[in-house]
């Protein structure tokens, strides 16, 4: 099928430094997998004057063990995240979530930095990264900033990058361990290769029979992916039981502001947010070693 791409220049810089310089120009945009950007360009949603290819730059690529955290380069392919033993061991909710994204073919070209940079309210890497308290490393020419992933999302399709900056990496703390459980639940319009109507990631830490830490994040229910502090507060310090979870999950309605769109109504998203928060929390508790039955 024939689509009109707007006129643009394509540059493939030799070094990261050169990439930054190219990105300084007005109308420049970085491109790695291009699975969001190229479609946006074909249908006229975005018209960059210059595409700066970055997927080949070694400083931006790969999954690395950094002691108490794991560093994921921005242009790391989504499928590499699914396949990473390191992540499966220390932050399993991320590969679990990424495995539900798109298709194998697309996961082999799309990158994690691209999914974050696109800043969709429905970004599927966001809920797991939110509950992992992951950080984004933002680099510019001679500058470096580190911020929580949840601050990187500024609004629908708006991120915290300034002109000339790139996501270099995502830092994921190693959190898995005794008494820790995490999980991800997604509902789309079919069983595979689909955008989220709502998805939820949760992480719980249990000591004895008490929930000592609870983190809940959702996508597609607000202008950006969100954490659910009301749910988290209702859980922290509570007994790790199904009853507590069922009730606490209702608090999620205070944390979200869904809209109606072609995918679903806000009413359905509200109901789904409660249901999926419950399901994900129950699964996380089970994975933390707690017996819960509904």
């Amino acid at each position: 099928m024939y689509y009109l791409l707007p006129d643009f220049r394509f540059v493939k810089p030799e070094t990261l430094r050169e990439a930054f310089r190219e990105l300084e120009t007005e109308g420049a945009a970085p491109i790695a997998g291009g699975t969001d950007l190229v479609i946006d360009m074909k249908v006229g949603r975005r018209k960059p004057d210059k595409l700066v290819y970055i997927a080949h730059l070694p400083e931006l690529n790969g999954i690395r063990d950094a002691g108490d955290s794991i560093v994921i380069g921005a242009v790391t392919k989504l499928q590499s995240i699914v396949d990473s033993e390191l992540l499966r061991k220390h932050a399993p909710v991320l590969p679990e979530a990424v495995n539900e994204m798109a298709s194998w073919q697309i996961r082999n070209i799309a990158t994690i930095g691209g999914n974050l940079g696109n800043a969709s309210p429905a970004a599927d890497t966001a809920p797991p990264l939110y509950v992992l308290n992951a950080k984004v490393v933002i680099k510019g020419l001679g500058t470096e900033r580190v911020m929580p992933v949840r601050e990187f999302f500024v609004g629908p399709k708006k991120n915290a990058l300034r002109k000339g900056e790139l996501i270099q990496a995502i830092i994921v703390p190693k959190v898995a361990g005794e008494g820790v459980g995490m999980s991800y639940v997604k509902i789309g319009r079919r069983q595979a290769f689909t955008l989220s109507i709502v998805s939820v990631a949760t992480l719980v830490k249990v000591e004895g029979n008490e929930i000592v830490d609870a983190r809940v994040a959702l996508n597609a229910v607000a202008p950006t992916p969100v954490r659910a502090p009301h749910v988290e507060e209702a859980l922290k310090g509570s007994k790790a039981t199904a009853e507590v979870v069922m009730k606490a999950a209702e608090e999620v309605l205070k944390d979200i502001s869904p809209i109606s769109d072609v995918r679903a109504s806000k009413e359905y998203r509200r109901l789904l947010s409660v249901a999926l928060t419950r399901e994900s929390l129950l699964t996380s508790l089970r994975r933390a070693g707690v017996k819960v039955e509904v």
Partner: peptide
């Protein structure tokens, strides 16, 4: 038609 594309007009996959 607000969803004239395969992103938002959804047909089943093998997994469905």
């Amino acid at each position: 038609i607000l969803n004239p594309n395969l992103t938002d007009y959804v047909i089943p996959t093998a997994l469905d």
